Computed example of a mutant assay.
Amino acid sequence: MSAADGPGALTLLHTSPVHVPVFDGLRDRHHPGAALRHLVVPGLLERARAEGPAAVTGEIEALLSAAEGGDGPVLCTCSTIGAVAEALGPALGRPVLRVDRPMAAAAVRTGPRIAVLATVESTLAPTLALIREEGAALDRERAGYAAALCPRPHVVPGAWERFEAGDDAGCLALVAAAAEAVTDADVIVLAQVSMAGALERAVTAIPLLASPAVGLAAAVGALRRA
């Protein structure tokens, strides 16, 4: 864990060290001066994939209870465990945000036919549940929207294996190709932080959404309101 000096820092909970420079870069470009603390725990994703996200609830609670900046906001950057982490906020007495919620909210407002791309199966159920939750919220403004909502999940074959092998370019090329192959959607969602680089590679007329930039913006906003 690397800690930014001074009070008022945002804690980011990651399941891969590769996400640290992504969020530091976004901070430097869009939120200069915002202090970030990174907590990297790869084992959380491994256990969540093997046993289900609920299996890591206690470990996440213990980690965040012991982390520096114990009353400041937390941003969970892993889609698989995001719902579990978010639900711990009241017990921890601090805001816990999931990086993909702002993306999901933007997706449902774009249109009901949502293609959800992921590189691991474990990401799909939490992401689909989040999209339906945001669709239900929008239904209060647009009656009947939830009934029309149609998220369609797709796992990109071979992409996770490339990512695990350190072949980020190969992973993103597969993700970009999968996005370009989608033809019958109002919007395409890239379910994981690690897929965000495909935004710059995919050529498609369909809106393509990723979570890091909008998720960090929401969390920095929570930090400044704290």
Rank of each mutant, 00 (worst) to 15 (best):
S79D: 12
A213Q: 12
A35D: 03
L39P: 04
L216T: 01
A137T: 10
L149A: 11
E86S: 13
G43N: 03
V18S: 14
P90K: 07
V22C: 03
G8Y: 10
G6N: 00
H31I: 01
L223K: 11
A34E: 11
I206Q: 11
V99T: 09
I60A: 07
L64A: 09
L209D: 06
A91H: 03
G69V: 02
A185R: 14
G158W: 02
G166E: 08
L174Q: 01
A115P: 11
A129R: 15
H30M: 11
R201G: 08
L216I: 06
A179G: 10
E161Y: 03
V156I: 02
A34M: 04
T110C: 15
L88M: 03
V220Y: 11
W160E: 13
G215Q: 05
V214Q: 10
V40H: 10
I188W: 09
E46R: 14
A176W: 03
Y145I: 09
R140P: 11
V175H: 10
A196E: 02
P212S: 09
A54R: 05
V214H: 00
M103F: 04
A106N: 12
V189R: 15
V41W: 06
V193K: 00
A85K: 06
E86F: 09
A169Y: 01
V155P: 00
I206M: 05
L149K: 09
E200N: 07
A85C: 01
V155S: 05
L216F: 03
A87L: 04
A34V: 05
H19V: 04
R162S: 11
A173I: 08
E61K: 08
L36D: 00
V22Y: 06
L209K: 13
V220H: 12
A104P: 04
R152C: 00
H31F: 07
A35K: 14
T77N: 02
V187N: 11
A165D: 03
R94S: 09
L13Q: 07
S194G: 12
A105Q: 13
G70K: 06
L208C: 07
E141P: 12
R152E: 10
A4S: 15
G89A: 11
A185M: 12
A115T: 10
E61W: 04
A148D: 13
L75R: 00
A169L: 01
S194E: 10
G82Q: 10
H19R: 02
E61Y: 01
L199H: 09
L26F: 08
A105C: 07
A191W: 11
A177P: 02
E46H: 10
V187G: 14
S65W: 01
L97R: 09
V18N: 11
A202F: 04
L172R: 09
A148G: 04
P21E: 08
G166S: 02
V175P: 05
A178G: 06
A222E: 15
A181F: 08
G6S: 08
P42S: 07
H38I: 10
A143G: 12
I81E: 07
G221H: 12
A191I: 13
A106D: 15
V203K: 05
F163W: 09
E86L: 08
A148C: 06
L12A: 07
M103D: 12
A176E: 04
L174T: 00
A107F: 11
V18R: 15
G215F: 10
A83D: 15
P21C: 06
I114E: 14
A210P: 09
V214D: 10
D100A: 13
A169P: 02
A125Q: 15
T183E: 15
L149I: 05
E68I: 06
A217Q: 03
